[in-house]
Design a protein around this nucleic acid. Structure first.
Length: 129
DNA sequence: CCGGTGACTCTAT
DNA sequence: TATAGAGCCACCG
């Protein structure tokens, strides 16, 4: 019986008044739930967050993810074909691939090998509290 | 306020 | 199988 990851229901505003549930923040929450050795896609995250065609926004969020705390494992997010389309945004163009290899994910020609086998679908793996 | 931009994806040709 | 266009919408100047 594997336990599903969980995430809080969307709330418009936190008691602090901070926008906890703005799109970027929710993207970060989802990405942080991706287990080591697994990957997902920009589109899958966008669909999970209820904005199916906003995959670009997810990419945008990743662009700003470097400064986030806790850290966001942006290297586990690739495009729908398993390609490392975001590699150029890591300090070193080979950094993204290196991080994935480190998690036993094979990468050949900027593409995750056996992508579907490693694919982690937020819609199936996360349940709301 | 406006418009260009983009770590994307889907559809039509 | 390839290529082009559109939808998407936060950010920035």
């Amino acid at each position: 019986m594997r336990k599903k990851a969980t995430i809080e229901q969307p709330r418009s505003v936190l008691p602090s008044g901070k926008a906890e549930n703005d799109f970027f923040t929710r993207v970060y929450e989802v990405v942080r739930l991706i287990p080591k050795g697994r990957v997902t896609s920009y589109g899958a995250i966008a669909r999970f967050l209820g904005s199916g065609r906003s995959a670009r926004m997810v990419g945008w969020a990743m662009n700003a993810a470097h400064h986030q705390h806790p850290p966001v494992p942006a290297h586990r997010v690739v495009n729908r074909n398993g390609q490392l389309s975001g590699k150029m945004h890591f300090g070193n163009p080979d950094e993204m691939e290196r991080l994935l290899q480190k998690e036993k994910i094979q990468v050949v020609q900027d593409t995750v090998v056996d992508f579907e086998h490693h694919f982690w679908d937020p819609a199936k793996e996360i349940e709301f509290l």
